[in-house]
Nucleic acid binder design. Sequence first.
DNA 1: AACTTATTCAACCGCACGCAG
DNA 2: TCTGCGTGCGGTTGAATAAGT
Length: 352
Amino acid sequence: MRKPDHVTVVKEKVNNNNNEGVKAKLRKGLWSPEEDEKLMNYMLTNGQGCWSDIARNAGLHRCGKSCRLRWINYLRPDLKRGAFSPQEEELIIHLHSILGNRWSQIAARLPGRTDNEIKNFWNSTIKKRLKNASNNSSSPNNSDSSEMKPNINLGGGVVGGTIFMQEYDVAAAAAAAVCMDSSSSSCSSMATQFGNVAFNPNHLIDHRHNNIFDVPLFNMEQQDQVGGGGGGVDNVGGGEILGDYGAMEPYVMALENDLSVPGLEVRGADNCSNYGVSDYVVMDKKSISVNEGQYFNNSSINSDDNQNIKVEELVGVGNHWQGETFKMGELIDWEGLLANVSSLPYLDFHIQ
DNA sequence: AACTTATTCAACCGCACGCAG
DNA sequence: TCTGCGTGCGGTTGAATAAGT
């Protein structure tokens, strides 16, 4: 790829005891193999700590932020290399339909992948593909659309379900609508509306393209999604991440399979960056023991948690919404669930 | 071979959040 | 309460590379 010697040097204030207020030269730009080695060795020896300390102690003339980024995006031993598999693509698109541009949360559900990697993949490959799909199926009403289009087939079958686009219609209020145009400011993450929820149609429209993305939500009776039964999430060892999602069905979804992804609210827990360093890491909320290279071991999940998974955790809502507790396998009435959708700031709804 | 254009992706930037003092 | 620091996130940039002419 790029030549590693393309770096710049900037002066930055350092704040350690010995050099209080002294300007130190910090490198910027591409990392050299020597720097990589230093950071890798330090991390494997000492584990994670304060990144600015790591940068200093490892003898790197880099800011802590840069070290952190390098470790997370490139040096972590558990990173998966190579192209995204069709299953991963499906999962990314599916998760993006749920989470929007929350790349870190999407990445938390794709072991071995980083948010940066997924973000790049989305912005280059998937966006382009979706755009092409839109061009191929353009109609007078949506010919200028550039984002989501119907029946996106990315090799592994129709992904994320059928995505309908149509001009806004009041009838659309009866259907679940997910705005997937991540670049639109009014729905930068995601916007979902259901029939019994008062809504402002303007918020369902991609303002740039005059379209809405009318997505009957996920049919969760999909097949053997991850590593076998029980809503397991053993998507690492077998390499199988997700199967087909099957036909879409609005309103009602069974969580037993499809969204049986453990909550991985990363913010504050920093569980990703511990992979490969610690022998295990206790993940927030659910006390999941994660051995090196073994991400989501059902057997190590607290039995209570096995039975009661919060929807917020399933879809990565995290702390933003104190959702009700659902039992695994229980059908969730999304219509009812999202009746209180205005209490979901995470989802960036606009209820009027 | 030389040049142009498109694509990829590592890294940076700015902002927000949590926490400690 | 305020401030500073460390951290994490998402958006963006721009160099390297690939593909096309």
